[in-house]
Design a binder for these strands. Structure first.
Lengths: 253, 253
DNA sequence: CGACGCCTTGATCAACTTCAAATTTTGTGG
DNA sequence: CCACAAAATTTGAAGTTGATCAAGGCGTCG
């Protein structure tokens, strides 16, 4: 419960020598991001002792509804979709998570949604108990998780506006805008032209937007004809002007 | 930063003599609920030093989008709606909060939604800085806020399913079910018959469900004719069987 | 090549919205 | 307490958007 006295609570020293950092974490792309980025070397060591890395194939299930959760994870690469299913088969994607997001409903025995890999996914997993112990004893850990929860809540509420009040075209534009903003394109950040791969297939986009496949397809065609996007192929999109795409999120024309 | 040594961090003593509790809090209906319920007497004293109580008329604004937030509040009574507005006037309610919920987007300068009183509302307000200081120094405070944020996130995601995939009738049934579950009726808890006042008018229900007033009105009529609800007057609803209402949340017939 | 999965396109249909008006409820002043 | 205006709700008819049903095209993998 006590902090090492030269590792102050609110300003974890990120400039420590690498030898303080666990081997497993040293080459980790998420080391300075997400939850790990806000841990002290001590805490990182404690966490990494029981850490394992896993890879999941696209469409495989990471967490299923109602099943007891025993681990939490950091997403290292790929996209995870959180889905809810109604008794009659209707489905809704209630969240998308990207690296380096933290995955898993903390402080709860069960998850009220299932988490599936939308693309191939790599994660770094921690036993539930280790995360929860660390959360109890390290206020900065709980703070980092709290910040992520707040971010997810903001995103969920933004999406509620999209689901409740936008037209089909606006919904699809909003989706493309969301992906364009989250998938870091390998190109210049401020390039006016953005190119990226869609992490979801049409059915998944439909389930995220509360539409049908056919409607999604038609709206993509419509945006293409309006020169708001170009399609290199089904999955690869070019956005000539992010400003025009952003405008399309609130205007059908 | 230090806890009083006889007030352990994780198990605040709630059985302390009342004289330890600030005068303002002693008769407070939220004293043992919400955030305050998880504070130690010490922390309660610290918080209460700068606390003020306020009343708001129905439809008045507690927090507006883009405006800097200087206080956080606990809701003592009434219902608060969180709303988002599009440039062309389309509106979506992205959350409803009831006593003793904590109100205000912590750790953020600005709110991305506005908060309005749906009914007359009474709140207990704290200066932003006091809450944030307490959060920094008292892990149990941050934990309590984190739990509330997680609860709101779960609710938001449940509602995304409602907005994205349910029919108009199911949406209205889901709304009635939500209210029936949150407004504690003054009657026996396990009574099969529940009676309550709707805290929202038709336009607000429509904005919560992503529908129009007319559609909401028609679906209410439909539920009434199907004997799933009875209307005492526009605002007062009787639910003869919560089980049947719950079923209506997933089945149009 | 052929089968399968995925996506697009077309035609029709139903749900919900829009527009319009009637009716009920609420609030205010005499 | 009543009268009247304003606000809120309901109801009806017509119009649109997106869903459903039905084919057909494209790309990949055996």
């Amino acid at each position: 419960m006590h902090q090492k006295k030269d590792a102050p609570l609110k300003a974890p020293r990120l400039d420590v020598h690498n030898s303080d950092v666990p081997v497993l974490c040293r080459a980790c792309e998420a080391r300075h991001k997400g939850i790990c980025g806000s841990l002290t070397p001590d805490q990182l060591i404690q966490l990494s002792r029981h850490t394992t890395k896993h890879a999941y194939r696209s469409q495989s299930e990471l967490i299923s509804v109602g099943e007891d959760v025993h681990t939490y994870s950091n997403i290292l690469s790929g996209v995870v979709k959180l889905t809810k299913l109604m008794a009659d088969g209707r489905q809704q994607i209630v969240g998308l998570q990207f690296a380096p997001d933290f995955l898993g409903r903390i402080f709860s025995q069960q998850s009220s949604y299932s988490a599936e890999a939308a693309t191939d996914v790599r994660v770094c997993s921690f036993p539930k108990s280790v995360v929860e112990d660390l959360t109890r004893t390290a206020p900065n850990m709980e703070h980092a998780l709290h910040e992520q929860t707040l971010k997810e809540l903001d995103e969920a509420r933004d999406w509620m506006l999209t689901l409740g009040r936008k037209t089909a075209t606006e919904k699809v534009a909003s989706f493309l805008y969301l992906i364009a903003s989250n998938i870091d394109p390998e190109m210049v950040d401020e390039s006016p032209v953005i190119r990226f791969e869609l992490p979801l297939k049409r059915l998944e986009i439909a389930d995220f937007l509360g539409l049908t496949i056919e409607t999604v397809s038609r709206q993509i065609t419509k945006l293409r004809k309006a020169n708001i996007i170009e399609l290199v192929n089904n999955r690869t999109v070019i956005v000539p002007s992010m400003a025009r795409l952003e405008a399309a999120c609130e205007n059908d024309e």
